[in-house]
Each structure stands twice: as structure tokens, then as C-alpha cells.
Amino acid sequence: MSLPVGLLALQGDFEMHRQALADLGHETRFVRRPAELAEVSALVIPGGESTTLTRLVARAGLADPLRAFASERPVLGTCAGLIMLSSELAGEKQGDFGVEPLGILDCVVSRNAYGRQIDSFTAPVDATALDGDSAPVRAVFIRAPRIMAVGAGAQVVVTHEGEPVGVRQGAVLGLTFHPELTSDRRLHRAFLELGG
């Protein structure tokens, strides 16, 4: 029996990810405590508010356990989840809003970089470098972050108008948008295949 896929269920749209993974026939379980990481095969850090997630991760004592988990197992972060995975924030000083990325995925991210909610949008993205399929994916960007720089260890695997919107480092995948909000399960499938 393989282990279920974990959903970091501190705050955010983890229920939408649960649905996406269930559509692909995968069992899931919620992770709120460090010990629960031992019971999952992979982990999704959902969209939500990165300020809130930072505080809840710290209070739950999850920061180091998450780093250790990501060195061994696949992790997907969408939107705020990508912010949590990133190594550095652009455009704000550490401590401005108290957001502390975990430094798991080697990239620099700028939060709310497109503007406020009225600037949220839906657009096609190119994920050929992720799964070899050149058909565009419809992507929902909500108060989305931007990837400003990608380190040597990571590679850009999804682009929007030539700009990076998805980064991969080994089996860790970070997306600035929300594949869980549409019915197309292609990117969740690609993530699950990163685990081999």
C-alpha cells in the first residue's frame, strides 16, 4: 500500500487540491503537525495567504520538518505555496510583513506582483518543459506572485508570454498560478510523476 499524498492544511485552498488529487485516484491526508509528514508520500502547499502561512508554519514547528521532507519527497507549491518554497523575496525587506520563505526552491519571488484582486487574470501558459505536451494550459492567476530570478539549481518549466510562472528543482515544483481551480488535471498529474 502506498502512502497518501499530504496536503498542508493550515490555511488556504487545500480542499481544491484534495479534489484534484481525488480525480486522479489518489488518497490524501491533511498535514498540520510535524509527525504527520512521516505518513505521506508527497506534499502540496496550497494557495492561501503567505503572511498567515508563515505564522502558522512557525507556530506549528513545521519549518525544519518541511525542509527535511522536501529533500526526500516531491513537493508542489501553488501561489502562496510557491512563495513559501522560494529562497528569497524581492521588493520587500525581511520582516516588512513577516513572510519567511523556507528556502527549498532556488528562486526569487515578488509577492502580489501583478497588483490587487482587480488585476487577477486567466491566461494560457506553456508547460511543454514540464511534461512534453505543447498544448497550452488555462491558468488562473489570483493576486499572483512573479518569479524574478531562478538559481542555478532550478529550471523554468512553465512560462506565460515568455516569463517564468513555474519552476522545478528535482521533485519540487512551484507554480505562481492555481491549477487546482480549473478542471484540467494535467499539472497535478505531472507533479505526481516527478516522484517517479
Binding site: 488556504g12 485552498d13 502562496a80 487577477s120
Partner: peptide, 14 residues
């Protein structure tokens, strides 16, 4: 509408 409901989804559990 999906973008609007999407923001509400992001606020869940908060």
C-alpha cells in the same frame, strides 16, 4: 467569476 470565487477559496481556513 471563477477568479472571484478563487480568491474566496484562498481565504479558507483563515
Amino acid at each position: 467569476y471563477r477568479q472571484k470565487v478563487g480568491l474566496a477559496e484562498m481565504l479558507k481556513g483563515g
